[in-house]
Nucleic acid binder design. Structure first.
Length: 748
RNA sequence: GCCGGAGUGGCGGAAUGGUAGACGCGCACGACUCAAAAUCGUGUUCCGAAAGGGGUGGAGGUUCGAGUCCUCUCUCCGGCACCA
């Protein structure tokens, strides 16, 4: 018989699947939809490492199971391709980032495709494609139109040596990531998105979605809502100083006020405490933050550790027992958030150009829809300019333009969008039909897509990294909620369910990185073991949500398992309905001949089905191993049992199961078979082992019918020799019976 | 400091309050082989020759029975961090 040769099988079926298009979504299907989503990758120059596919494989298993359950499944992928590493590489080498991106995505695509993940490649998107980013620009214009995009002077991170503005990600411990120079703050006009206007909606929406609790907590903390009161303190009878406090009830204990370092107008003056009507001093200190609340607080040393410390240090009065005030006795109820508006511009080349012009006469003017996409022009030098402006600022023929409103001279905005922009709506981009996506940017065209949105949104299951909890996940919820409010998407929350995968660490527990030289490339694993083994190993190595070390020597286990399933073909002899050796048996009587086998089959179907839903891929696989081992121990294997094993294994090892399936004479794909169902009545076998304890310690066991009643079970247990020995001449005070499982005798 | 999560064999890890260590790796022995690899079989928590006893970071508690529930505590990982 033919040996298991993964390379041959995998190549063959990947081509076959592509040809038949079995993973494509069916736009005309009446079946219920299922939208599975993974965070689309950033195609870095380092290529794929074994950590990348973990989430893809996880949701691939879910998606494949859903197809077998009859769902019309959309499982798409694309490229989040704008970003700094590509730009830095372009600066260093002078290579065109567009070209670099193309090379990188080609590599990533080849690598991902070699793993047999059931992505619908016909829906592939790329955020750097003008056909894509024209819509990103259009959504920005919508924000502008609704007053949620605005310009403000903001400090940016500035490296005085490299003379460039740095993204937050490029600042490590307050120093420039490249040269190690101390980063300074420089004031610059920035585009902002008013995410704070959505703080309450982003918060309350969390109650309606199925996210891990820790994700919800992190988002809540990040939004940082606190309810308190603003209280005005009269200063010099002419002016008043407003403070924010969550404890207005402690105002009788306020013995001083503190303003943030930069708000020094009141420093050294006195204010009147409206509760005590006493004069209290106004101090200035760094522990009060200028950009939170009102930038001023009332000092209540008895109630706040920091106030206490400050009071002691500066010999300020401390009042310990004071009267409690009502919440609004002296102030007004207000709500404050830690969340800040989103700094939305970058002084960088490799991003979406912000589609506005600056006209001396008309001010900031948005480009009309008809001028989208505003293409990113070719430049010779990708290095940011001396003034900290984007390299786009040096291209005069691009910068100088005419105002769309008055036709006069105008200059283009030269800042670009952050790389969070394209990923804030990509789950919608997958739903566009091709004509719409490539067609004109207009509200009419978008509205033609809404029926697709209505059909597929929200995303049913979204898996991604914990590191994106307060960035991408929050940003994309914000964009979706905005689009929902202006009637352009049907669901207020984009993702119904969110899960997170743990990262795969290098052997030794460090993160995999090119600089450490510890990256494992999946190509070499696929070459040596096959994609099915890699898939199985990544799911089997440990709990999906937990970070875990790569361990090369453990790969052989899943491979052996696949070999074993492969060889089981040889034992295939009978179908349960055949009358060759058992005469005219129906299935029921065969179940009587093989009661344990029937129980195990049903338990396996149940456990694997349930584990896939709860990310318990590791235990699902061990259950399949137990079942396969059991079949292997039998003289003959029934076709029904074997085919059930293959179907349950198909989402995990799609190539090998497809090969065996077709070898068994089936002409259609196993991945379109119906997912096995279990018989609730056959989960417990008729015969069971009952454990007997004396005082909680296991001392014996016996086998019995599972229907045995308490009286009989206790009776049998008590008469066991080893139990007699342990009870001896002690009195049994009490016996505990757990049906069909355990008897425990309690003695004096 | 605050908020999450986790501590179980040589290793990765299983266990609706009911036989702790499933499944896999590794290791040992055996079969096959001239031999090796592969494969198959048996064994593998610790102490002990055995009988038996101990054992899920530590200390208590609840319970007939605790890895699981409660109290205290130690360590590690992740997030936020002077947010009034």
């Amino acid at each position: 018989m033919k040996e298991y040769n993964p390379k041959e099988i995998e190549d063959k079926w990947q081509k076959e699947w592509e040809k038949s298009g079995i993973y494509k979504i069916d736009d005309n299907s009446d079946n219920p939809k299922y939208y599975s989503l993974i965070e689309f990758p950033y195609p870095s120059g380092d290529g794929l490492h074994v950590g990348h596919p973990r989430p893809y494989i996880g949701l691939d298993i879910v998606s494949r199971k859903r197809r077998m359950q009859g769902y019309n499944v959309l499982y798409p992928i694309g490229w989040d391709a704008f970003g700094l590493p590509t730009e830095n590489y372009a600066i260093k080498t002078g290579k065109n980032p567009r070209k670099v991106t193309k090379e990188n995505t080609d590599t990533f695509k080849r690598q991902i495709q070699s793993l047999g993940i059931s992505f619908d490649w016909s829906r592939e998107i790329n955020t750097t494609d003008p056909k894509y980013y024209k819509w990103t620009q259009w959504i920005f214009l919508k924000f502008l139109e609704h007053g949620l995009a605005y310009k403000a002077k903001m400090p940016i991170n500035w490296c005085p040596k490299d003379k460039i503005g740095l993204a937050n990600e490029e600042v490590v411990d307050g120093k420039c990531e490249r040269c190690g120079m101390e980063v300074v703050q420089k004031e610059k006009e920035q585009w902002m998105l008013a995410i704070t206007k959505y703080a309450d909606k982003l918060l309350s929406g969390l109650d309606t979605v199925d996210y891990p609790e820790r994700v919800k907590i992190q988002q809540r903390n990040w939004i940082g809502k606190s309810e308190g009161a603003e209280i005005s303190f009269e200063v010099d009878k002419s002016e008043s100083l407003k403070v924010f406090t969550t404890r207005p009830d402690t105002i009788f204990g306020a013995t001083f006020l503190v303003v943030a370092g930069k708000v020094d107008r009141f420093t050294g003056k006195y204010a009147i405490n409206p509760a005590t009507e006493e004069k209290i001093p106004v101090w200035e200190a760094e522990y009060v933050l200028a950009d939170y609340g009102t930038g001023a607080i009332m000092g209540v040393p008895a109630d706040d550790e920091r106030d206490m410390e400050f009071a002691k240090k500066n010999n300020l009065p401390i009042v310990t027992e004071y009267k409690k005030a009502g919440f609004e006795d002296f102030g007004t109820k207000v709500v404050k958030y830690k969340l800040r508006d989103w700094v939305f511009s970058r002084q960088r080349y490799w991003g979406e150009p912000i589609p506005v012009v600056h006209c001396d006469k008309c001010g900031t003017v948005p480009l009309p829809e008809s001028e989208l996409p505003l293409l990113l022009p070719e430049v010779k030098n990708y290095q940011p300019t001396d003034t900290g402006e984007s390299p786009l600022a040096t291209i005069e023929e691009w910068v100088n333009t005419t105002c769309p409103t008055c036709g006069g001279m105008a200059k283009r905005e030269t800042d670009t969008m952050p790389n969070w922009a394209g990923s804030s709506w990509y789950f919608l981009a997958y739903l566009f039909n091709k004509e719409g996506f490539e067609g004109p940017v207009s509200i009419e065209n978008w509205k033609l897509q809404i029926k697709n949105f209505r059909h597929f949104m929200p995303v049913d299951w979204y898996n991604g990294g914990m590191e994106h909890t307060v960035l991408h996940l929050l940003y994309s919820r914000f964009w979706n909620k905005f689009l929902f409010d202006i009637g352009l998407v049907p669901a207020s929350e984009p993702y119904k369910k969110r899960t997170s995968h743990g990262i795969i660490l290098a052997e030794g527990g460090e993160k995999m990185s090119k600089s450490k030289g510890n990256v494992i490339n999946p190509d070499s694993i696929v070459e040596r073991f096959g994609a099915d083994t890699l898939r199985l190993y990544e799911m089997f190595m440990g709990p999906f949500e937990q970070a875990i070390e790569w361990n090369e020597s453990s790969l052989i286990g899943p491979r052996r398992f696949l070999e074993r399933v492969w060889k089981l073909k040889e034992k295939l002899a009978l179908t349960k309905s055949s009358d060759v050796s058992f005469g005219k048996h129906d299935q029921t009587s065969l179940d009587k001949v093989f009661p344990f086998a029937t129980t195990l089959l049903n338990q396996t179907i149940k456990k694997v089905s349930e584990d896939i839903e709860t990310l318990g891929f590791n235990t699902a696989i061990s259950t399949l191993m137990i079942f396969a081992n059991d079949l292997d121990r039998r003289e003959k294997v029934f076709k029904e049992d074997y085919e059930t094993l293959l179907k349950l294994l198909a989402p995990f090892a799609p190539h090998m199961t497809e090969e065996i399936w077709s070898g068994l004479g089936h002409t259609s794909s196993i991945h379109r078979e119906q997912w096995p169902e279990f018989d609730e009545t056959k989960l417990v076998s008729d015969e069971v082992i009952i454990v007997v304890q004396v005082n909680g310690k296991v001392r014996g066991q016996f086998s019995a019918l599972s229907s045995i009643n308490e009286k009989d079970a206790v009776g049998v247990a008590k008469n066991l020799l080893e139990i007699q020995k342990w009870i001896g001449d002690k009195t049994v005070q009490k016996s505990v019976y757990v049906p069909a499982k355990l008897v425990n005798f309690v003695t004096d």
